[in-house]
């Protein structure tokens, strides 16, 4: 199982966040990635916490920063990938995997299929932010009942699914494990984030999940990533 980190990134800067609400500036993306890479993090998911539909210019500004990243760590990127125009801007970026959220919740296959052609099916990740039994549709800035999710659609188009606990984000070992029972997809496709601590990493290993992405803690104690990987902090 992989042990990685989630970084929130918007308007050129990285942030730590608590409960998907309170944010604290963290610094520039290259510095954060370099620190994590130094301690051999397995992967990094860069997520733009976009609320509602944004204009392409704001997206373009963040893309410029990502385009200049120099990293030898596997990177996933998403947040605001809603159209083919967005995907076209990603062509030259140093990223391997693309994270779609609203497109999966709304079953909008058009940008996903286009991305598959350019990056391959193996590169597509679905991000499902959740609290209790609700999932967050970022494009409309609102939560929907989990029953609105089409698991067959997720299984077909996503190589992996990131379950992000928005309520417990920033608080170690508080990830709502019960959510796994709601997801009718292979456990080997599931990545968890939000409220991940050492106990959650151990739980994820026991369940043979694909990956656990730690949020805040590894961003101000980068060295701890090795301890998470070895099962002790």
């Amino acid at each position: 199982m992989r042990v990685g980190a989630t970084i929130l990134f918007l308007n050129g800067y990285c942030y730590q966040s608590y409960g998907w609400k309170r944010v604290r500036p963290l610094g520039e993306l290259q510095g954060v990635i370099d620190s994590l890479e130094k301690y051999e993090v397995d992967e990094v998911a860069i997520i733009r916490p976009v609320r509602e539909v944004e204009n392409l210019e704001s997206f373009r500004r963040d893309i410029d920063v990502i385009g200049n990243l120099n990293s030898m760590t596997p990177i996933s990127f998403g947040g605001g990938l809603n159209s083919i125009e967005h995907i076209k801007l990603l062509h030259q970026l140093p990223i391997e995997r693309l994270i779609f959220s609203s497109a999966f919740i709304e079953k909008n296959s058009k940008p996903i299929k286009f991305a598959q052609k350019l990056f391959g099916h193996q590169s597509i990740q679905a991000l499902i932010p959740f609290r209790n039994r609700e999932v967050f549709l970022s494009k409309e800035n609102r939560f929907l009942d989990i029953s609105k999710l089409d698991f067959e659609f997720l299984e077909r188009y996503a190589n992996e699914v990131i379950l992000f606990d928005t309520e417990n984000e920033g608080t170690p070992n508080s990830f709502q494990k019960e959510i796994l029972e709601e997801f009718q997809i292979g456990k080997e496709k599931i990545v968890i984030s939000g409220g991940v601590g050492l106990e959650t990493v151990k739980f994820a290993k026991e369940k043979s999940l694909a990956s656990a992405l730690i949020e805040n803690r590894v961003l101000h104690k980068e060295f701890s990533i090795r301890s998470y990987k070895n099962g002790r902090v």
Partner: peptide, 15 residues
Amino acid sequence: IGSGNIKSIQNLIHR
């Protein structure tokens, strides 16, 4: 030829 991830390879060689 228009597929993704060219930049990472270029970064590696430039290192």
